[in-house]
Write a protein that binds this DNA or RNA. Structure first.
Lengths: 197, 197
DNA sequence: CGTTTTTCGAAACGGCGTTACCTACACTGG
DNA sequence: CCAGTGTAGGTAACGCCGTTTCGAAAAACG
C-alpha cells in the first residue's frame, strides 16, 4: 500500500561505496551529503532514511574501515618466532594505513567533525587488534616478552605503530627520510623494549 | 586620510585569544569565524584584514600551540642519566598534550579541515622537538643509545609518544586502564629498545 | 475508481566561509 | 571653515553545508 521502495539495501551500499570513493579521492573536506547523494543518483533524503544522518553514514565508513583493517591484520602469515610475528604485524599495520590514508584518518583522526566514535565503535576498533593480542600472548607464554598484562603491551605496540604512521601521514617526518626503513627499525626497537633479555 | 584604525595588533591578539578559548571550550566543531568575531566584539571582516581567512587564523593557533609545546619541553629539568632524561621528556610530552587536547588536535589531528600545515609549519613543529634531539645526541655520545642517526631515533620516540597520547585522547584505550602508568612503562620500554645492552 | 497510506524528491531553513558593496570618517586643499 | 577625497570596516549578499518540512507520486484496498 505504498509506492515502490527505492531506498533499499542496494542503494545503501551504493551510497556507502560512493562515500568511500569520495573520501579516498578528495579527503574528508570533500565529503558532503549532497555530493554523495547526487553522485549516487538520488536525493539527500535517502541518506536520512537509510542512515539517519551524516554522522551515522560516517560511522558506517568507520566500521567498514576497521573491518578491512582487521582482515588485513588477520591475514598476516605468522611463523614460530613471536618477536618476528610482531614485526610482521607492525609492517602490515603501516601498509593497511597507507592503503587508504583518508580512511585511516576517519578511523583515528576525527577527520569528520560530525562523527565521534562511541563505546561500541571503540569495541570494534579494539577487536581489530585481536591478532596483535594473540601474538603478544604467545610471546609472553614463550618467555620472549616480559610478563606484563597482554593488554598493556598491545596498547603500547598499537600506540607506537599508530604514532609512527600518523607522523608519516601528516608529513611531519623530515624530508628525505626513508620512512619504510626507519619505520621497521622503530618497530623492531619498540618490540625489543618489551622482550626479556 | 582615512578613518581610525580598529583592526590593529591588539584586536589581532584578542581574536586569537578568543579563538583559543573557543577551541579549548568546544573543540574544533564550535570554532566558527562568525562566532570568534562576534565574541571579540567585531565583524568577520576583521579576521580577513588581520589574518586573510580562517586557514591563516588556525595557522596562527597552530604556531602558538607548538610554541607552547616547545617551551614546556625546553623547561624539563634534565639530569646526568640520558635514558632518564628521555623518559622525563616523554612524560612532559604527554602532560603538554593533555593540558589542552583540542589544541593538540589542531597540531596533529587536522581538526580544522580548512587548515593544512605547509612546509614552514612543519619546520616549526620539528624544531619544537629540539630538546628531544639534544637528549638523543647526548645519549648516543654517552654510548647509552645505539649509534643510529639522531634524527631517526627522534622521529621514532616522537612517534611513540604521539601515538600513545593520540590513542588516549581518542578514548581508544580499554576502559579501566591506568593510562599514566602504562604510558610511562611504554615510554621506558621504547627507550630501552634503542639502548645498547 | 476514489480513498488511503506510504515513500521520497524538492524546497525551505539556519549556519558556515567568503566577497562585494557602500557608508562613515580623518585628512587635504581651497 | 568647509567641500572633496580616499580608505577602513560593518552590512549584506552568495553559494555552500546538514537538516527538516511538505507535498506530490503511486501502489493497495474497499
Amino acid at each position: 500500500m505504498a509506492r515502490p521502495k527505492v531506498h533499499d539495501e542496494a542503494l545503501r551500499l551504493r551510497l556507502l561505496d560512493e562515500a568511500g570513493r569520495l573520501l579516498s579521492a578528495e579527503g574528508a573536506a570533500g565529503l558532503s551529503l549532497r555530493r554523495i547523494a547526487t553522485d549516487a543518483g538520488t536525493s539527500t533524503t535517502a541518506v536520512y532514511s537509510l542512515f539517519g544522518g551524516k554522522p551515522e553514514l560516517v560511522r558506517a565508513l568507520f566500521l567498514e574501515a576497521f573491518g578491512r583493517f582487521a582482515t588485513r591484520l588477520a591475514a598476516v602469515a605468522l611463523g614460530a618466532d613471536p618477536a618476528e610475528n610482531l614485526v610482521r604485524l607492525g609492517i602490515a599495520y603501516r601498509e593497511a594505513a597507507l592503503a587508504d590514508p583518508h580512511l585511516y584518518a576517519v578511523m583515528f583522526g576525527r577527520a569528520v567533525p560530525e562523527f565521534t566514535p562511541d563505546a561500541p565503535d571503540r569495541e570494534v576498533s579494539l577487536s581489530a587488534m585481536r591478532p596483535l593480542l594473540e601474538a603478544v600472548r604467545a610471546g609472553i607464554a614463550a618467555g620472549v616478552l616480559v610478563p606484563a598484562p597482554p593488554e598493556t603491551i598491545v596498547v603500547a605496540l598499537w600506540g607506537y605503530a599508530h604514532g609512527l604512521v600518523s607522523l608519516e601521514l601528516n608529513d611531519a617526518v623530515p624530508e628525505g627520510f626513508d620512512v619504510a626503513t626507519v619505520y621497521e627499525a622503530a618497530v623492531r626497537a619498540a618490540i625489543r623494549g618489551w622482550t626479556v633479555r
